[in-house]
């Protein structure tokens, strides 16, 4: 089956290139991506009658979602980056309008738990899901913030999808193995903090 690919604008190519780089280049790509299509916020206000804050939330959630898809190969280049992002943004705006009555704040979650649980069978999944449902998320986030800065950074970078090799470069560790051992120790420390009365 042939797939028609669009020839991307040079800015889009640069954004895509930077997003797939480690460290500072990725951060630069994220900011460049956000800045390039920031005028969507205004369109969200005009076309969906959202407030500025709501349109901002929808747009920044769309950018985070799009970045995640790009990094995991979800952008196939069958449309321009702008058209593709606008589709995501449009859906976010519609979701936001639906949620407005329940006054729920939207927090974007990149790799969802559901994605990770996909790997295990339904029986095992329901066992784990029941345990996850008991998680005190605020407490866990609070304890995560209580870890030393290096620990916190390592766990955050790893959750974001950085490899141990990338993290070693970012945080100045000698090897990826050192990062992996330190990171797992941090995870263990977090568990002890979380379980402590």
């Amino acid at each position: 089956m042939s797939v028609t690919k669009i020839i991307l604008h040079s800015t889009d190519q640069e954004i895509l290139h930077n997003l797939n780089q480690p460290g500072l280049m990725k951060r630069r790509g994220e900011e460049q991506f956000f800045n390039t299509y920031m005028y969507f916020i205004r369109e969200g206000m005009q076309k969906h009658s959202l407030s500025e804050d709501e349109a901002f939330d929808a747009y920044s959630d769309s950018i985070l979602s799009a970045i995640d898809k790009i990094i995991h190969g979800g952008f196939e280049g069958r449309s321009t980056l702008k058209t593709w992002l606008y589709q995501i943004f449009h859906h976010k705006c519609v979701d936001l309008i639906r949620k407005k009555t329940t006054n729920k704040s939207s927090v974007h979650q990149t790799i969802t738990l559901a994605d990770m649980l996909f790997q295990i069978s339904d029986t095992a999944k329901s066992v784990v899901q029941n345990l996850i449902d008991k998680t005190d998320w605020e407490q866990l986030r609070a304890k995560l913030n209580q870890l030393g800065e290096n620990c916190r950074q390592m766990l955050m970078l790893s959750a974001e999808g950085f490899s141990d090799k990338d993290i070693s470069g970012e945080l100045g560790y000698k090897t990826a193995d050192v990062v992996k051992t330190s990171r797992l120790r941090c995870l263990e420390k977090l568990r002890q903090l979380y379980k402590a009365p």
């Binding site: 985070l64 979650q109 990149t110 990770m116 998320w137 866990l140 986030r141 995560l144 955050m156 959750a159």
Partner: peptide, 15 residues
């Protein structure tokens, strides 16, 4: 369950 919850929490902070 803890591993998955901790990963999700770290990601919430990132976002």
């Amino acid at each position: 369950a803890f591993y998955l919850s901790a990963t999700q929490s770290a990601l919430d902070l990132v976002n």
